[in-house]
Simulated scan of single mutants.
Amino acid sequence: MEINLPDKLYYSIGELAKAFNVNASMIRFWESEFPIIQPKRNAKGNRYFTKEDLRNLKMIYYLVKEKGYTLDGAKAALTTNPRIGDTVEMIDRLNFVKAELIKLKKALPEKE
Rank of each mutant, 00 (worst) to 15 (best):
M1L: 11
M1S: 13
N4P: 02
N4R: 15
P6Y: 05
P6Q: 06
K8R: 12
K8H: 04
K8S: 03
K8M: 05
L9F: 09
Y10G: 02
Y11I: 12
I13F: 07
I13D: 07
G14I: 03
G14C: 01
E15A: 09
A17R: 06
K18F: 07
K18R: 15
A19I: 06
F20Y: 12
F20K: 09
N21H: 07
V22Y: 04
V22N: 04
V22C: 09
V22F: 04
N23T: 04
N23I: 00
A24S: 07
A24V: 00
M26D: 09
I27F: 02
I27D: 00
R28V: 03
W30A: 01
W30D: 01
W30T: 00
E31Q: 07
S32N: 14
E33K: 15
F34L: 04
P35I: 10
P35Q: 08
I37Y: 03
I37R: 03
P39C: 04
K40N: 10
R41K: 15
R41E: 06
R41G: 07
R41F: 07
N42A: 05
A43G: 03
A43T: 05
A43Y: 06
K44W: 00
K44S: 13
K44G: 07
G45N: 09
N46V: 10
N46Q: 15
R47L: 03
F49G: 06
F49S: 09
T50H: 05
K51H: 09
E52R: 12
E52G: 10
D53V: 12
D53G: 10
D53R: 10
L54W: 10
R55G: 13
R55S: 15
L57R: 00
L57S: 01
L57D: 01
K58C: 09
M59R: 14
M59C: 15
I60M: 12
I60A: 12
Y61P: 01
Y62T: 06
Y62L: 06
L63S: 01
L63C: 02
V64M: 12
K65E: 14
E66I: 09
E66A: 05
Y69S: 13
T70M: 13
L71N: 06
L71M: 14
D72G: 15
D72Y: 14
G73S: 06
G73D: 06
G73R: 00
G73H: 03
A74Y: 03
A76Y: 06
L78N: 03
L78R: 02
L78H: 01
L78C: 08
T79G: 00
T80K: 12
N81Y: 08
N81A: 07
P82W: 01
R83F: 12
R83H: 14
R83D: 14
R83V: 05
I84W: 04
G85S: 03
G85H: 02
D86Q: 13
D86R: 06
D86A: 09
D86S: 11
T87L: 15
T87R: 07
T87K: 11
V88H: 01
V88E: 02
V88R: 00
V88W: 00
D92M: 10
D92A: 13
R93Q: 13
R93D: 08
R93N: 09
L94P: 04
L94F: 13
L94S: 05
N95K: 12
N95C: 08
F96Q: 12
V97H: 08
K98S: 11
K98N: 11
A99C: 03
L101E: 04
L101T: 02
L101F: 09
I102A: 11
I102G: 01
I102V: 13
K105G: 02
A107N: 12
L108V: 08
P109V: 11
E112M: 11
E112F: 14
